[in-house]
Nucleic acid binder design. Sequence first.
DNA 1: CTTGACCTTCCCATGATGGGAAGCTTGAAC
DNA 2: GTTCAAGCTTCCCATCATGGGAAGGTCAAG
Lengths: 127, 127
Amino acid sequence: MNIGQAAAASGISAKMIRHYESIGLCGKAKRSTSGYRVYADTDVHVLRFIRRARDLGFSTAEISKLLALWHGRRPSAEVKRLALKHVADLNRRIAEMQEMAGTLQHLAAHCHGDERPDCPILGALES
Amino acid sequence: MNIGQAAAASGISAKMIRHYESIGLCGKAKRSTSGYRVYADTDVHVLRFIRRARDLGFSTAEISKLLALWHGRRPSAEVKRLALKHVADLNRRIAEMQEMAGTLQHLAAHCHGDERPDCPILGALES
DNA sequence: CTTGACCTTCCCATGATGGGAAGCTTGAAC
DNA sequence: GTTCAAGCTTCCCATCATGGGAAGGTCAAG
């Protein structure tokens, strides 16, 4: 498989596959005589693992740890710890954004939204 | 006021004030004879406006529009439209992260979390 | 053998923020 | 008056994940 096929099969762009290789997230791909990267099914399994982890919002550093656990002794305690830490991080960011959205929603509800210059949203930003 | 005082008074780091000036978000500060940036209270008002908008999660492009509305005819219809678009964007991202967190929470709940190698979280990532 | 699709590497860009270096200015203490 | 620290200036680099694009090599089908 060339990188294009591996990209299609894994759902990661060729650009990102090269990037992940360059930062050491996945191992270096074998090369054909002409220098093309060559991928086997096992390599695509790894790439799919990476894509699913990425879709769950894990950073590359976290994915790196997950990969090591996956390929190693896989103690589920450590995996669970990583996952719950990530959940906590997500929840923290969710709460931050909910507060922003709530504030703005409230301000917008009190904004008549016509052509008058008096606007509670601008008022809140300037006060 | 020097940039340090303006930073303390506005809650934006000196580094970011220079950056905002360089990208044209705020006007160029006046300079002393020796080249130091000099800020008046009105400049700090602008910086505080920027900080509050930033705290509500607006991008610099959006803040730029809000500043123009603030300093111009301030039609509240346009401000409200911007605010609600931003709320919609926040809600979209919140929903994405909630889905990630929910999935992970569910997987972690089914993970015994001991030293056994069998882990539903890794299972979901590899399947 | 040409052509078009694919591959390679390398550089640059995003957006918001910070670190740090080299050098100049200011104000206060001695 | 000099000296010293703190603060200012500009400039370059880094983050994180991702993509664009250029210049050039390779492969398969016509």
